[in-house]
Amino acid sequence: MSSKRPASPVKKKVASGAQASGPSSALKGYFSNHLKVSKLSFKEQTDRPVATLLTCSVIGIALVLPTLLMILLSNIHAANFDWDGSAQITLFLEQKVTSKEAVELTRKLENRVDVSRIEFLDKDKALDDFKTQFQLESVVDFLDQNPLPHALLVTPSSTLKGVPAIEQLMQQLEALPEVESGLLDALWIQRLKSITSFLERVVVLIALMLALAVLLILGNTIRLAIENRKEEIAVLKLVGGTRPFVCRPFLYMGMLYGLGGSLIAVILTHIVLAILYAPIEALALSYQSNFNLKGLGFDSTLLLIVFGTALGWLGAWLAVRRHLDEIEPT
């Protein structure tokens, strides 16, 4: 039956052998193996659609929560940026300053580059407003003299970024001889900032925990896959498969799970945002804000997919590291 001679004489030295071909052909073999393995992993996963979809969904759901929180944060940041410009400094002038002097001061301050707008509040007008607004005519009439000082409402230039810069401006204005004291209407901005930085930490912590959960889920899935292919792994090791070669299908499997999971996360995020859009719009309107909900942009989508895929790879790598060496041919 097979007395035929082999195609070429068998190599006699152990040192030479299978790799008689040049480096370019070896590279070709390497890439063709990557292509083949990735296709096989993909096929293997699509052959079991329900199990694969379940695993991907678990990963997707785990990725959605931190993604939504990130979106929330970036929206707060964007809104914050607008509000920085609306911070106002109220300057109360000394009692002895007259209307005329106050108007002069107003003109002088208007020329400053770090002031965008300035409004003079006359103390008599302020008292009238006070009377009408709070219906305290009798009380006010009882006073023999207007206790209110003249005031200036200063809107800092939008080139001033952040509360510290505005505070610095206020200190400079307070140093003027006509000014008795100043009041910065920025406390609430500061509070919002602390809340935001607290939220940032919460998001990072939640994201870390969920990433860990994704790693555990994937690790377990890959561990089962390794268990199912024990014999194959043993045979590959016997015929001279290197560690990277034997690992490769499992790493691709992890990456594909991660990719699938992050695609599901992208879809879920869009669904959640679509559901939330109307109520947020209504809320913004009630504050007379032209606030616009920023969704998942192209960059973030790409980032999410890359991150999910990398996480899948990492989970598989951890599982492979732990379990592959245990399988030795016997």
Partner: peptide
């Protein structure tokens, strides 16, 4: 083909 694949031979070979 396994022993050739693990050695990274090219598909034609």
């Amino acid at each position: 083909a396994l022993p050739l694949e693990v050695a990274g031979s090219n598909p034609r070979e």
